[in-house]
Design a protein around this nucleic acid. Sequence first.
DNA 1: TACGGTGATGAGACCAAGTCCCATCACATG
DNA 2: CATGTGATGGGACTTGGTCTCATCACCGTA
Lengths: 191, 191
Amino acid sequence: MGRWEPDARERLVRAALDLFSEQGYENTAVAQIAERAGLTKSTFFRHFRDKREVLFGGQDVLAELMTGAISGAPEEAGPLEAVEAALVATAVTFTDERRAHGPQRLAVIAGNDELRERAALKMVGFAVAMTDALKRRGVPELEAAVAAELGVLAFNHGYERWLETGGDFAEVTRRTFSDVRAAVGSLEGAE
Amino acid sequence: MGRWEPDARERLVRAALDLFSEQGYENTAVAQIAERAGLTKSTFFRHFRDKREVLFGGQDVLAELMTGAISGAPEEAGPLEAVEAALVATAVTFTDERRAHGPQRLAVIAGNDELRERAALKMVGFAVAMTDALKRRGVPELEAAVAAELGVLAFNHGYERWLETGGDFAEVTRRTFSDVRAAVGSLEGAE
DNA sequence: TACGGTGATGAGACCAAGTCCCATCACATG
DNA sequence: CATGTGATGGGACTTGGTCTCATCACCGTA
């Protein structure tokens, strides 16, 4: 596993994040990112499938953590409890270091359609993963889909709250999920 | 409003859909689509922002129909009733002619990541549009988001059901949304 | 110390998506 | 018949993304 300067991948992420912030996503060429990281275009595409992916690395790990938690939830747990376990299970990846450049990352994504598109796909990926995992537990199709969708909603809101308020991701997300469930209750009760 | 052969846009859509089915999305060049439609690459990009968009035309109209219906819903209507009205309002665009190439379109989209990505973005667009429209009615943030998300879920499932079973889109969607609400009820009651 | 294997990188050709600018054509109007 | 307008054609150009081959650092081993 020989290497010149270590952490090529992380260097690319940092360079990309900074350049996107400075000049905007579409005004930044991949070659420029690679150059700032002391690498070349070839190496960039060896680490990331495309230009967008440099901002979304490790999301597949999240999906695996979610499905793992749902599969491993106790027999008696209902779908919503399983989904909550899935959200909590992702907390291990949300370190303080990751929290540091979270706002910068969010701002870049919000400012570009291609990136919002990629973000949307990732969320759909989470929803599908959780839906499938729930169905494997015997949860009916529609109930599984609804539970998963509520989970993704809580995940997104929870992530933003976590960036704003800090604290433990698991704790913040649990609260957020509880708020979502309360909102569902209000909706059902209102009519 | 001069024009040689009429309906350039529709010809492009047909050509694209057929070529994508025959050879796959990524094996089809924009120039090829334009050629089959008797046009050129320039004209293609004058009608569609990018290669993907040729399969997603008119989705902005749907979003407007949804927000219009939510804004125009009676005062007493709850969030879920407003969302149901939004779904029903889109029915006018789902003609028999559109239903004809629906399955072909779905198959093409399912077979390519870029296209699923674009589809995901469109759904997020619907969710955001409905959420905002609900908030303008005074619905609290989270309740609005949940209601909108349930609406999008019903919209997607309803669309597929409509393609399979036929009939009136409004009717199919109404039933689907009712099923989604029932699923929500089961979830809440289970724990 | 020399040698070969391995994994990461560099370099450059190549194709297609998407942008831009300008010329051109059909049609309507005066 | 002149003129304007909207849609199209054509081609140059940039960049994302793929592919192939050469190169370099490191590691183990003789």
